[in-house]
Nucleic acid binder design. Structure first.
Lengths: 346, 346
DNA sequence: GTTGGAAACGTAACCGATAACGATTGCAAT
DNA sequence: ATTGCAATCGTTATCGGTTACGTTTCCAAC
């Protein structure tokens, strides 16, 4: 079959085998009620024509397709890790996976694209979907599991324990002696972003360190968004001795800005991220961060979705996974302990 | 709309708007022949019900879907890099991307699964597909571009210049003074594997170094396959002073075996890989390898496929991308320099 | 008043596969 | 010979959306 030929359909097989499409369907699906000789006929016709059933036609007719969907907008290492977990959870499960990634055609309008794609798929093609870090609450006619949902979402979801992770980071920094700790927040609509910021606040409050609102920059998880915020924080005369960024992507940009400004990390500035993406271990210096096992997020989400689809799910509709502080080279005690008039700017 | 509700279909919209489904279809697709007032009616009904057209139903009826497919079996860093390239090429193009990943249900039978999935998708769902490192030649009723095809494939494809890359590696090793150079081959059905081996042979032949067939181990690109081969090569009394593995994954295993046998790299043994996957830069010592820009492979494949689908492709049906030797810490001149004139064994 | 023609809209036939249902056949038990 | 039951297989409605085609409506031109 070269390009341009019409695809082989079930009726082609039926014609060649001299039976009806119904019989072909029964043979293909291994149903009861076909004589051995007919089966042989049909099989040989299928073989000769190289027939494969159309996923689309099957989906339209059947309710179950044994295909699960995953909807994502980006392909950063975060997503790649999640995917590995999803694939492993689905391996040998009988479910195939379709990943739907949009081409960002609509630009700004693309907020809410997850919902559009989800509806387009879930009506027929997939038995259920995983949605990664959506822009808003999602709804679907088939089961959905969200990884990193928006705040106050009621949809089944899987999230890391962002509150505990962020709290631990700040406690660690406080323990090192830092008092002026900057924070670069993530996209505030996401529960993860909110929890990480809340953890930052609580840890400071519990330690009795007065919160300085001007030390908080409003990023959106996009690494680029951290650059001007980091610059603003680090060019102040009373710059913080540590910066905690709500994602590794943003934290890595903070490292770049610091290098650009001639600041030594961790000597002049400690930097902490969140996520533990592979790149963080390779940064110079290696980034201290919170591991949230994106692999595990994907694995659990897939397992949960699979069970929801088959109707076997017994657990809670919201899963929270533990986090782990990973201390590397980007953090150290502050050089000079709390002096308002430290260095002259270069 | 919670889980379990039936999806909203076009006839739901039609009923609410008091028109036929044909009219709704015309409105949705912006076709000519609907009065302004009817359009408003339909639009409002769509809005109220939250209707989205079903990708499946549309695909079944129409030939064009503006969706391209990518079929892959694994999700290693190789694939992830390729994907980034594909996504970037498709960004803003109007094409969406569906990645089909199988769950390895059939085990051994899964050889040739690419062809099955391809046929299942291309009949209807997608306008064209990219296939990554297939097991055999593929065919489809819609355009296909293969990344790393099998030998003698006639399907449009994108490949790195494996011959030049491998030749350069061996010339580099020869230039360092190595004469006994081992080779661990990849899955021989793939054109890439064959070219890399051919490059190895040619470079040796051109330098007048007699080829020793016992220095060639037959791997299959699976990292594990390299372990016994590396052990066999390195436990010989006349072991090679350098090993060139046809992929980074296998080369990293060679490093492990060398360490296990107490050999110093690069002192006692030089090791070179091929691919330049991210992990190679982190190995200890960092791996000398050939960069084949997997991102670029994906980008070019997507661009080519897009043009094939729209019928605008003018270029050749086989694209070869340049490679680049990346020298890192795993290579050095052989410790014991034999008599410069003799090319015989130690 | 009639006609022509285009605009507006509905009807029904698809697309490929599935499954409920009916029809036919074979075979054994009565 | 007749009945009963299961095995076997074809017919047809159906999934949701698209489109060729036919019908109706409306308005301008003759």
């Amino acid at each position: 079959m070269a390009d341009g030929d019409a695809p082989v359909t079930m009726s082609d097989v039926a014609r060649l085998a001299g039976v009806s499409t119904a019989t072909v369907s029964r043979v293909v699906n291994g149903r009861y009620g076909v004589s051995a000789s007919t089966i042989a006929q049909v099989r040989s016709a299928i073989e000769r024509l190289g027939y494969e059933s159309s996923l689309v036609a099957t989906s339209l007719r059947r309710s179950r397709t044994n295909v699960l969907g995953l909807v994502t907008h980006s392909f950063q290492s975060y997503t790649a890790e999640v995917l590995k977990g999803v694939m492993d959870a689905l391996s040998q499960s009988g479910f195939d996976l379709i990943i739907y990634a949009n081409s960002d055609l609509y630009g700004k309008y693309s907020e809410g694209w997850e919902q559009r794609h989800l509806t387009r798929l879930s009506g027929t093609l997939t038995d259920g979907c995983i949605v990664v870090t959506p822009w808003g609450e999602v709804r679907s006619s088939t089961p959905v599991v969200v990884i990193d949902p928006v705040r106050d979402s009621t949809v089944p979801s899987v999230t890391a324990d962002n509150l505990a992770g962020a709290t631990q980071v700040v406690e660690y920094l406080l323990g090192l002696g830092h008092r002026r700790i900057g924070f670069i927040a993530g996209r505030s609509s996401l529960a993860a972003a909110w929890s990480r910021e809340e953890g930052y606040r609580r840890a400071l409050a519990e330690a009795g360190v007065p919160a300085d609102p001007t030390l908080v920059g409003r990023g959106d998880f996009n690494p680029e968004s951290a650059i001007p915020l980091a610059r603003a924080l680090l060019e102040r005369p009373d710059r913080p001795t540590a910066i905690f960024a709500a994602s590794d992507g943003m934290a890595l940009k903070v490292l770049e800005v610091a290098k650009e400004l001639g600041l030594d990390v961790p000597g002049d500035l400690s930097v902490v991220g969140f996520d533990n993406i592979p790149e963080s271990a390779l940064a110079e210096p290696a980034l201290t961060t919170v591991d949230q096992s994106m692999y595990q997020l994907g694995y659990e989400a897939a397992h949960m979705l699979k069970s929801l689809v088959t109707g076997e799910w017994e657990g809670p509709s919201r899963i929270t996974l533990p986090t782990r502080l990973v201390v590397r080279g980007s953090t150290a005690p502050p050089k000079i302990t709390e002096s308002p008039e430290t260095t002259a700017e270069a």
